[in-house]
């Protein structure tokens, strides 16, 4: 009478909390260190190698005609944009790996990569969207700011002017007013930026996980997921930053050391060009290694947060049947 009973699906991870999100991120990061850093390394190479190559080529081509140089510049620009898109894709790949690990449906880097790579240009599209969005935010905020300053000071000056044309107090009043406005504006503007950062913190991750999505759908998903959770996200990011602080500190110290070294060399009567170049290269190396360690951490965090938001906002973990792989 009874139908064949399938085993119940393994219970998925339920909504977490800010603290555990960071702990899980750290644990995932450490247990998958080689995989995630490996992917980040490939991503960074997509930026470093082209820059080195273009630098070398332009040095060779420097003596040729302007036409060739222009052509070379244009093609180099396009190539760099593509390479940047590749870098973004590799970063997103780390988030996908972390997300799928939480789902208990691990895949190899190769498998994941073939899926994600189809959407290279869409990852770039998302980055462009965010850049334009931020630009508009900046412009609108500053326009509003200057309108306020203009109206406010004119009104104050006008009022003072009617009462007493030669009043220096009006000047003081206007300066105090402007100062207060600048401070208020600065605080509000920082909060706005942080808010936007939180609303789009997992920007590319939905696309990395569900590669068939369209760019506008990804933005919509971001908006829906982070709604009502902005403060929660701010707490998570603060804790994550605190936990990251030692690594930042180490790399800050290293880059200061390299800088001092370079300055010491410049101060010598006959600075050796080779040593100077080497010290600059060392500086780049430090920042590359820093990125290599930090990018996987933040991308893992994005994957974990995306999972958590999906459980909270979509009830994603509530499954009576095992999830079908997309």
């Amino acid at each position: 009478m009874t139908a064949p009973v399938s085993p119940p699906p393994k219970p998925l991870l339920q909504p977490l909390n800010a603290g555990n999100i960071v702990t899980i991120t750290v644990n995932l990061y450490l247990t998958h260190f080689r995989t995630y850093v490996g992917v980040a390394w490939q991503g960074i190479l997509w930026i470093v190698l082209p820059i080195l190559g273009i630098t070398a080529l332009s040095a060779i081509l420097a003596t040729t005609s302007a036409g060739i140089l222009l052509l070379f510049g244009l093609s180099a620009g396009v190539a760099l944009i593509y390479c940047f898109a590749q870098f973004l894709t590799h970063s997103a790949l780390i988030s996908r790996l972390a997300f799928n690990h939480l789902l208990d449906s691990d895949e190899t880097v190769k498998e994941a990569k073939t899926k994600v790579k189809k959407r290279v240009w869409s990852f770039l599209g998302l980055a462009v969207f965010l850049a334009i969005f931020m630009m508009i935010t900046y412009i609108v905020s500053f326009v509003i700011f200057f309108i306020f300053i203009g109206i406010g000071s004119t009104m104050l000056a006008g009022l003072g002017g009617i009462a007493n044309p030669s009043n220096t107090a009006v000047g003081v009043l206007v300066s105090i007013f402007i100062l207060l406005l600048v401070i208020t504006f600065f605080v509000l503007f920082s909060l706005l930026l942080l808010w936007i950062y939180c609303r789009f913190f997992v920007l590319e991750v939905p696309l990395a996980v569900e590669t068939q999505l369209k760019v506008y759908e990804v933005i919509q998903i971001n908006w829906n997921l982070s709604k009502k959770n902005t403060r929660y996200l701010m707490v998570i990011l603060s804790i994550a930053f605190l936990v990251n602080a030692p690594i930042y500190l180490v790399f800050q110290l290293l880059s200061i050391m390299v800088q001092t070294l370079a300055e010491l060399i410049i101060d010598t009567p006959f600075p050796s060009v080779v040593v100077l170049v080497l010290s600059y290269l060392l500086g780049y190396l430090v920042s590359i290694v820093g990125g290599l360690l930090l990018i996987p951490f933040w991308q893992t965090l994005k994957g974990v947060i995306f999972y958590d938001l999906k459980t909270r906002r979509e009830g994603f973990d509530l499954q009576l049947k095992p999830i079908q792989d997309s």
Partner: peptide, 26 residues
Amino acid sequence: LLKKITLKTPESVELKFTLAGIGKRA
């Protein structure tokens, strides 16, 4: 995803706990 430990009381009773984790402690 979260580390767990088993503690032994003097009476040899085993207690299982989930460790606090760096996130919560920070």
